[in-house]
């Protein structure tokens, strides 16, 4: 009797140890990736990186200035398209949607969120690049917007649902029309939560590469026209990483450091907003 208990305790300890090992095995690659981004990125980054565009093949130096501006432009444009769709769509779900329509839309949003981003790129290609007869920043932004929409919609809906019904009713009882109540009361009291969702969706698309491959395409030079191919940081990191030049690898690491820093800043801000909301 005592023997089996010892045996069982031994088994328990062994399995506990193996779970600790699993956790370590999961965290080690994470640590390594951070270590390499920090080490390689920090040794590669300099002022030139932020103010110059890439040098032609074979020359050393240069930076990703055009990629950073291009990415900012793409994200701004994608947000202009994607955020209203997500936020207003969520308002519809919360305020008007019948259960069947709402469920269909929720389901579609979840499905859309699961579609591989490269497919989103292909669709943007056939819907925009082909008719417009050329790769363009606009097509890239639309592809990114398609990725943002389900994220913004679902997080916004969750936040709006948490606004107490009494608040809405108080506003409606004062004779404020429904549309004003939605915008001024419901949406405003959920501002922090909605911002969290928006920041998370931006963090998500800031690093997206696949949907830009055949929409924004990338550009070696400066470009600000929406109808022309535009440079983007993730595309530059991709191209430089697979190129056989040491100096381009250096640029790729520097780009990775910048991108990861920006994305963590975004997620931390989102977390901070989310947390401060919980406390209030």
């Amino acid at each position: 009797m005592m023997n089996t208990v010892t045996l069982r305790n031994l088994k328990n300890s062994l399995i506990t140890v193996s779970m600790v090992c699993a956790t370590v095995a999961v965290l080690v690659p994470l640590g390594l990736i951070f270590f390499h981004i920090m080490k390689m990125g920090a040794s590669s980054i300099n002022l030139d990186f932020f103010i110059h565009i890439p040098k032609p093949t074979g020359e050393t130096g240069g930076g990703m200035a055009n990629g950073m501006v291009g990415s900012a432009l793409l994200i701004a444009l994608a947000s202009t398209i994607g955020i209203p769709v997500g936020v207003f769509g969520a308002l519809y779900l919360v305020e008007f949607g019948g259960s069947r329509a709402s469920n269909a839309i929720r389901f579609a949003a979840d499905v859309l969120a699961g579609v591989p981003s490269i497919i989103t790129g292909m669709v943007a290609y056939t819907l925009l690049v082909v008719p417009m007869k050329g790769f363009s920043a606009l097509a890239g932004a639309v592809a990114l917007a398609l990725i943002m929409v389900p994220i913004v919609l679902r997080t916004t809906e969750e936040q709006l649902k948490m606004v107490p019904g009494s608040l809405r009713e108080a506003s409606l009882a004062l004779g404020v029309p429904l549309w004003r109540t939605c915008l001024k009361v419901t949406l405003r009291s959920a501002t922090k939560g909605v911002m969290t969702g928006i920041l998370l969706s931006i963090a998500r698309v800031a690093g997206e590469t696949a949907p830009l491959l055949f929409t924004a395409l990338g550009n070696q030079f400066w470009s600000h026209k929406l109808t022309e191919p535009i440079a983007a940081m993730p595309l530059q990191i991709f191209n430089f990483a697979i190129a056989p030049y040491e100096d381009w690898h250096r640029l790729a690491w520097a780009g990775a450091l910048v991108l990861v820093t920006v994305m963590f800043a975004l997620s931390l801000t989102a977390r901070y907003l989310g947390r401060s909301k919980q406390q209030s």
Binding site: G89, A90, F96, A101, A104, A109, L127
Partner: peptide, 27 residues
Amino acid sequence: ADLVFKGVTAAFAFSILVILALMALEM
């Protein structure tokens, strides 16, 4: 005004269904 508001939000919400359908159709 409320109807217009409802219409606008509905258009955005249902655009997701349209996007998904369009995606499948195009492919």
